[in-house]
């Protein structure tokens, strides 16, 4: 019988011993940080990674400088996670907010698209539907298999990334990907000057480099901050669900649902399952659609 008495707990916290219950990481941090941060005396209640409620001086909430993820670290991924995405085709009406947000955040320029919204039609009698596609972060990634220099790799959290500091630009991965998810910087990419000096990490995919491959990265930089990828948050129709398969939960911002139930109840499928690539992106079939189909196919490529 493990019943927790709320009163003793409450007193415990009230006595200001809360800090003692902080996870070891945070305690250790205090040791490092105590003299560098001026405490304001204003406290805020927060949840530590261990699920403890702790009170922390508000000074610690001030923006902490972005910490650079080393290339080595970005090869391993976020421990204990298996990221997964579900795309509800019934809700997609080709607003392309996902596409625009992705383009903007990854500085894709005029010819590059990580995320495409494609017009699909299963057969000539079926109504077409809109299908957002991107890298599916396959569990048996044919693109990673063929890379001669370990420039593209699959991480423990399921994400497939590219290290453009390593890539030799052979483009073998592009032909190996049956979903045409990868793009190439054929010429010197144009981006704002301040970006050129930004610390590069495979997790952000910026700044892009000429002669190398890039693609949708599942925004691990956002995920590390506990936020969802840009396409997910940009979609006003809640088409994208994103989450951790290990937690069996995905969220589209508005609601959080169990992944297994969602796929079971709505007949989730993966695009071209017979390729054997085992994508980490699932689709919910475009049945009982929220919108009538409207043909306004779009391409940014000028040719």
């Amino acid at each position: 019988m493990t019943a927790t008495d709320q009163n003793s707990r409450r007193n415990f916290l009230k006595k200001g011993l809360g800090i003692a219950a902080v996870s070891s990481a945070v305690t250790a941090l205090h040791a490092f940080q105590v003299d560098s941060v001026e405490e304001t005396g204003e406290k805020v209640k927060l949840l530590s990674p261990e699920g403890e409620i702790v009170e922390i001086d508000i000074a610690y909430l001030k923006p902490i400088p972005e910490v650079n993820i080393s290339p080595d670290e970005s090869r391993h991924g976020i421990p204990g996670r298996r990221f997964v995405m579900v795309i509800d085709l019934a809700q997609c009406k080709n607003l392309r907010k996902c596409h625009d947000a992705c383009d903007k955040m990854h500085h894709c320029g005029p010819e590059k698209e990580f995320l495409k919204v494609l017009k699909m039609q299963n057969n000539t009698l079926a109504t077409p539907f809109w299908q957002p596609t991107m890298c599916f972060h396959c569990d048996e990634p044919p693109c990673v298999k063929v890379c001669p220099v370990d420039a593209t790799f699959k991480r423990e959290d399921g994400i497939v990334l590219i290290d453009t500091d390593r890539c030799i630009g052979c483009r073998f991965c592009m032909v190996a990907c049956p979903y045409s998810a990868r793009t190439f910087d054929w010429s010197e990419p144009a981006f704002p000057l301040e970006l050129a000096h930004q610390h590069y990490s495979p997790e952000t995919s910026v700044p892009a480099k000429m002669g190398t491959v890039s693609k949708c990265d599942f925004c691990p930089d956002m995920v590390r901050k506990g936020e969802m990828p840009h396409c997910v948050t940009a979609c006003p129709n809640g088409v994208f669900y994103f989450g951790d398969e290990n937690e069996d939960a995905v969220s589209n911002g508005a609601e959080t649902v169990r992944l297994s139930e969602l796929l079971r109840d709505r007949s989730g499928y993966r695009y071209m399952e017979d390729m054997g690539t085992r994508p980490r992106v699932y689709y919910l079939p475009p049945v009982n659609r929220a919108f009538p189909f409207q043909d306004d196919e779009f391409t940014k490529h000028k040719g």
């Binding site: 063929v146 890379c147 001669p148 390593r166 030799i168 073998f172 000429m210 002669g211």
Partner: peptide, 26 residues
Amino acid sequence: VDMGRPDRFLNVIFHARIQSPITWDV
């Protein structure tokens, strides 16, 4: 000539990934 980054040609040797048919080809 076909490589996007010929300047990194030596990666093919120093980071050789034995699973890739390109490595076998080299």
